[in-house]
Simulated scan of single mutants.
Amino acid sequence: MAWLLLAAAIVSEVLATTALKLSDGLTRWGWTAVVAVGYLASFLLLAWALKLRMPVGIAYAVWAGTGTAAIALIGAMFLGENMNLVKAAGIALIITGVAVLNLAGAH
């Protein structure tokens, strides 16, 4: 159950961050509302996952790393941001780092 809550927290955070870009500096009220609700939901879901005894280091690494990689990909695919080999390598390193932390936490 903790992993499902964490996954929902990640989705909520990614939606909120995408809406943050679309809010044009929090001047577009509809997108600003999505930002506020999304971040609030994300933190609540993350807190509930931690309450179920998910280790904080693992939870935060997965939440932050997955969110960062997802936002970088969304920016490149849908928001007109550039992607190059160095950025792609950075995303791969983030994913690798999260995987290593998870493997280390399993023992």
Rank of each mutant, 00 (worst) to 15 (best):
M1Q: 12
M1A: 14
W3C: 01
L5M: 13
L6G: 05
A7V: 10
A7H: 05
A7E: 06
A8Q: 05
A8W: 02
A9D: 02
V11R: 04
V11F: 09
S12A: 15
E13K: 08
E13V: 12
V14W: 01
V14K: 01
V14R: 01
L15C: 14
L15V: 15
L15T: 13
A16M: 06
T17E: 09
T18D: 11
A19P: 03
A19E: 03
K21Y: 14
S23H: 11
D24K: 15
D24F: 11
G25W: 09
L26R: 13
L26E: 11
L26K: 12
L26N: 13
T27V: 06
T27N: 15
G30S: 13
W31N: 07
T32C: 05
T32R: 03
A33S: 14
V34G: 07
V34E: 08
V35M: 05
V35R: 01
A36I: 13
V37F: 08
V37G: 02
G38Y: 02
Y39A: 09
Y39I: 15
Y39M: 14
L40G: 14
S42G: 10
L44S: 04
L45H: 02
L45T: 00
L46S: 06
L46D: 05
A47I: 05
W48F: 14
W48I: 11
A49P: 00
A49R: 00
L50H: 10
L50M: 11
R53M: 10
R53C: 06
M54K: 02
P55W: 09
P55R: 13
G57N: 08
G57S: 13
I58T: 10
A59I: 02
Y60E: 01
Y60D: 04
A61M: 10
V62W: 02
V62Q: 00
W63C: 03
A64N: 10
A64T: 14
G65S: 08
G65L: 02
G65M: 03
T66V: 15
G67C: 04
A70L: 15
A70G: 07
A70P: 05
A72Q: 07
A72W: 03
A72L: 15
L73Q: 11
L73Y: 09
I74A: 06
I74G: 00
I74Y: 00
G75T: 04
A76T: 02
A76G: 10
A76P: 03
M77C: 12
F78C: 02
F78H: 12
F78K: 11
F78N: 09
F78P: 00
L79A: 07
G80I: 05
G80S: 06
N82F: 06
N82Q: 14
N82R: 15
M83G: 08
N84C: 12
N84W: 06
L85A: 14
L85H: 09
L85Y: 10
K87C: 04
K87Y: 08
A88M: 14
A89E: 10
G90R: 03
G90H: 00
G90K: 00
I91L: 07
A92H: 08
L93H: 10
L93I: 14
L93F: 15
I94T: 09
I94E: 02
I95M: 12
I95T: 07
T96H: 08
G97P: 07
V98K: 01
A99P: 04
A99H: 03
V100H: 11
L101R: 06
L101H: 01
L103N: 05
A104L: 14
G105H: 07
